[in-house]
Design a protein around this nucleic acid. Structure first.
Length: 477
RNA sequence: GGCCUCAUCGUCUAAUGGCUAGGACAUGCCCCUUUCACGGGCAAAAUAGGGGUUCGAUCCCCCUUGGGGCUACCA
């Protein structure tokens, strides 16, 4: 390992704004951020939009918004920091400079082969069981072949062994002879990923490149280019992939993959981050519920797993509840607001407090809240049979609903609390039994097979609405 | 096909050369209970296979098997 490394910890996360931000990318970002914060280093955001066709401004905006939502702040990035610009699309002059130098030093060259020729070559090699690499036809051309125009720029790959020490995997070796001369740019103005990354990581003085395992085989190519340009070599660490139920790279078929969706479903940023941290990393002890702050303290790259981790939504759901429970009523109310608005549910502040107290242990996400609390805003339609406790006859149920009304009648709206209602019902329950009293009451108030406690429902609904619902029940029988 | 890489309960993982391989999610059962949740308790559940090294291997080495990633004028 003769490579020179950069002293100060400077890490980057480099998303491509070509689609909704993927949870895999979020996890990579988190690990980089955690590492930077733990080491007192610098966390840099670089937008990798060299693919002009697929890159979209709106996706970049989404990444920025999600980052803020997650609470992952960056020290340098678009509009911030002095080693910019931080969008690859704005750095073409820089790439041109490096490209020109490589060309001039004959470490890279123009390739005139057409796509068709290359594809034919590739297929022929594959058919013979040979590694599919470029044959190097244009490598030593003195003059452009007649009638052909330059197609791409290729890197002159030396036939050497490349070895590097991965932070997570240890020694990794590649035989560069198997790569062939790979393409580094479409033309001097349009660099490709592998090349742009090398230039940027150098210019931005990146000390550690922490990224997903899918980049492991890009690393030797990047090291080769660093050597050709005389640049320092960052330290690499390749994170295990997040997998689906079939143990393949997480895709949309298996679970929701965009972070946006998880926010819309009412997950907490802290819970998502906690969950993602546990996908491929684990502390030495048994604690699993962490705040972001605790994560910074605990995080250690040496405890990152090598094998891929299956995305388990059930565990995310559980973790979300754990995080939900730690929030104050005010915090929950704040998160809840957009979800209620979306469903056109507009409780007054007193009712909202009651609902939050009631639902906070029953729900796992905020979207579950609006579903679960729906019955407080409008009584669902239900069959009259729902009102009967076990096999008690209709007549008795009818009698019971009337008795309930009578019990509630003397209560003032103010006395219509859980305790007040319970006191009013005490005699009835003692003579008739809990089930005979509470089931019909609950059914009449909720109109559902399953719901919260009837006393809680009644106290939140208030006397007027409670009596109205009992009246409806009576009419049903 | 080639190159790289990975391998502990269904899933996320702990332990590491040495006590009955620990925890969590999920699952099942029980308790609590007017229903559903919550909560409490219990149970079932793993070192892929084969060789070594060693007094002793989940752990170290090799092979096999299986999985995954890459193999673009995407990133």
């Amino acid at each position: 390992m003769t490579a020179k490394h950069i002293e100060k910890v400077r890490v980057r996360f480099a998303p491509s704004p070509t689609g909704h931000w993927h949870v895999g990318g979020v996890r990579t970002t988190l690990f980089n951020w955690l590492f930077a914060r733990k080491q007192g280093g610098v966390f840099i955001l670089r937008i990798e939009d060299t693919d002009a066709e697929r890159s979209k401004k709106e996706y970049e905006a989404e990444i920025l918004e999600m980052l803020a939502w997650l609470g992952l702040d960056y020290d340098e990035g678009p509009g911030k920091g002095n080693l910019g610009p931080y969008r690859q699309s704005e750095r073409t002059a820089l790439y041109e400079k490096y490209l020109a130098k490589l060309l001039e030093e004959h470490r890279a060259y123009y390739c005139y082969c057409s796509k068709e020729e290359l594809e034919a070559e590739r297929q022929a090699l594959l058919a013979q069981g040979m590694p599919a690499k470029y044959g190097g036809h244009c490598r030593n051309l003195k003059n452009p072949p007649a009638g052909k125009k330059p197609e791409v720029i290729r890197f002159k790959t030396p036939e050497v062994e490349i070895e590097f020490k991965d932070l997570i995997r240890g020694k990794v070796k590649f035989d560069a002879a198997l790569f062939g001369d790979f393409v580094i740019a479409k033309d001097v103005h349009s660099p490709l990923y592998n090349f742009a990354v090398v230039v940027d990581d150098h210019e931005m003085q990146i000390s550690h490149v922490i990224r997903g395992e899918e980049h492991l085989s890009n690393t030797p190519k990047q090291i080769l280019m660093q050597k050709a340009m005389g640049l320092a070599e960052p330290i690499y660490g390749h994170l295990p992939l997040i997998l689906d139920g079939e143990r393949k790279k997480l895709s949309k078929r298996y679970a929701e993959t965009s972070l946006l969706e998880y926010r819309e479903r009412g997950f907490l940023p802290g819970a998502i981050l906690n969950f993602l941290a546990l996908l491929g990393w684990h502390p030495s002890h048994d604690k699993e519920v962490f705040t972001l702050k605790e994560l910074i303290q605990e995080f250690d790259l040496s405890r990152v797993q090598k094998a891929g981790a299956v995305f388990n939504e059930k565990k995310l759901l559980w973790l979300n509840r754990e995080h939900l429970r730690k929030l104050s009523e005010e915090e929950i109310a704040k998160f809840l607001d957009p979800f209620l608005k979306k469903k056109n549910l507009t409780p007054n502040s007193e009712m909202l407090r009651g609902l939050i107290r009631l639902e906070r242990d029953r729900i796992r996400t905020f979207s579950e809240f609006s579903e679960s609390a729906g019955l407080f805003f409008s009584l669902p339609d239900y069959p009259s049979s729902l009102l009967n406790w076990k096999d008690s006859p209709k007549e008795e149920t009818k009698q019971m609903i009337s008795s309930l009304k009578e019990c509630f009648a003397p209560l003032t709206e103010k006395k219509f609390t859980r305790e007040g209602i319970m006191a009013a019902l005490r005699n009835l329950i003692e003579t008739k039994g809990k089930g005979n009293v509470l089931w019909p009451l609950r059914a009449a108030l909720s109109g559902q097979m399953a719901s919260p406690d009837p006393l809680d429902i009644a106290s939140i609904l208030g006397k007027t609405e409670t009596l109205r619902r009992l009246e409806i029940a009576l009419k049903k029988i």
